Simulated scan of single mutants.
Amino acid sequence: MKKVRIGIVGLGRLGKKHAENIAFRIPNAELVAACSIVKEEVEDVQRNWGIKYGYTDFSEMLKNDELDAIFIASSSTEHCRQIEEALKAGYHVFSEKPLGVNMEEVIRAKEIVEQHQDKVFMLGFMRRYDASYAYAKKKIEEGAIGKPFLIRCYGLDPVKAVKGAIAFSEKSGGLFLDMAIHDIDLARWYLGSEAKSVYAVGSCYAYPEFKKYNDADNGAALIQFQNDAIGMFYAGRTCAHGYHIETEIIGTEGSLRIGTVPQKNLVTIFDEKGAVQECVSGFLERFEQAYVAEVQEFVNCILENRKPGVVVDDGVKSTEIAYACKESFEKNKLVFLNE
C-alpha cells in the first residue's frame, strides 16, 4: 500500500491527537516527522511512537525530502506563515483552523494556495466529517426539511477549561473566531449562502479577565444571509455541564437537531440524583472520529489527485464572517459584509 509521508508541526493537545491519528489510525499515512518549539514534546513522541525525525525548527523540517505533506497544528498565529512556507517548499498541506488571525493573513494565504493548484490544501473544519453532521447535510440535500431558512448553533466550552481560554485569549482572535467559526462554516454549508449582515453582542459575565483583550466569555450573533436565511449563534466559555455543541436547522417542511443533549454515550445512570446522562467533556472526545475522518480524506485526496470538499475559500469566508461578528461586538453596531 502506498503511504503518504507526513510531518506535523504543533504537538499541543489537538496537535498530539492528530499526530497519534496519523501514526496509528490512518492506514495509508505514515508520520515520519514531528516538530514543536517544545523540545520535550518532540522527544516524547519520538521515544514512545518511534517517529524517525524530530525538529524544533519548522524550516528545518521542510528540508526533509522524505516527506510528502505537512500537517499544521501549531498556534493560530503561525498558520498562514507555515502554510506559505510549506506550499512553496513543494508539500501538500493540511492546516487546522483558523486559516489566520486577521484578514490580511487570510487573504495572503488564499493567494498562496491558489498559486499552488498542483498541491492539495485542506482546512480543518472537522464537523463536516462527523457522522451526524454529514447525515444532516444528506437529509437537507434530499429535501427532508424543505428549504432551510434558519440555523441555530450553540458552541459552549466547559467552564473547567476557562483558564486555558484566558491564557490563549491574546492570540485567539476573539470569541467568534476562536469558537463560533465552526458553526459559521456549518451555516454556510447547510444554507448554501454567504452572510449579508451581522449583529453581535456579549460581555464578560463571569470572567473579567477577557476584557483585557477586548473579548467576552459569552456572546451571541444574529446573521442574515444573502438568500435571506437566518443564523443564530451562541458561543460561551462557562458551560457547567460539559462541552455542549448543538445545531438546529429549520426548513419550510421540518427541522433537524444535532446534539440537543451532549450525552457521553447511551448509558443512563439511575441513582439518588435521578436519571442522569453524562455529558462529553471536550472537543477531542465529541469529535474523535471526525478528526480521523478528515485526515483520511486529506490523505485520500493526495493519493487520488483530487481536491477536498473543504477548501481555502471556506476558511476565508468563515473568517470574514467571524471578524464581522468581532467588529459588531466591539463597536455595538450592525455590520454589513461585502460593502
Rank of each mutant, 00 (worst) to 15 (best):
Q82K: 14
E20K: 09
Y129F: 15
S75K: 12
I250P: 00
S132A: 10
G15I: 06
A322P: 12
S328M: 07
F283S: 13
L14T: 06
L175F: 07
L222T: 10
I70H: 09
S255E: 06
S169F: 08
K139T: 03
L150N: 04
I321M: 10
K138D: 11
H79I: 02
K119P: 02
E339K: 11
S59P: 00
K211F: 07
R188Q: 14
K211E: 14
E40A: 11
C204S: 14
A229K: 03
G50R: 04
E78P: 00
G100H: 07
G242H: 10
E304G: 08
E297T: 11
I37G: 01
A206C: 08
E104H: 05
I302T: 07
K326L: 08
I26T: 13
K147W: 01
T260A: 12
D217S: 05
I22S: 12
F287A: 04
D118C: 03
T247H: 07
K52L: 10
Q289A: 07
G54C: 14
H18A: 10
P98A: 05
I51M: 00
V335K: 01
C204K: 11
A134N: 11
R25C: 03
G202A: 05
D217T: 04
L256I: 15
A221C: 12
E246V: 06
D313T: 00
R306E: 03
D157W: 01
S203N: 15
D178Q: 13
E78M: 11
E294H: 14
I249R: 07
S193R: 04
G50M: 04
V311E: 14
I51S: 00
G124N: 09
E272G: 09
Q115A: 13
Y133Q: 01
V299Q: 12
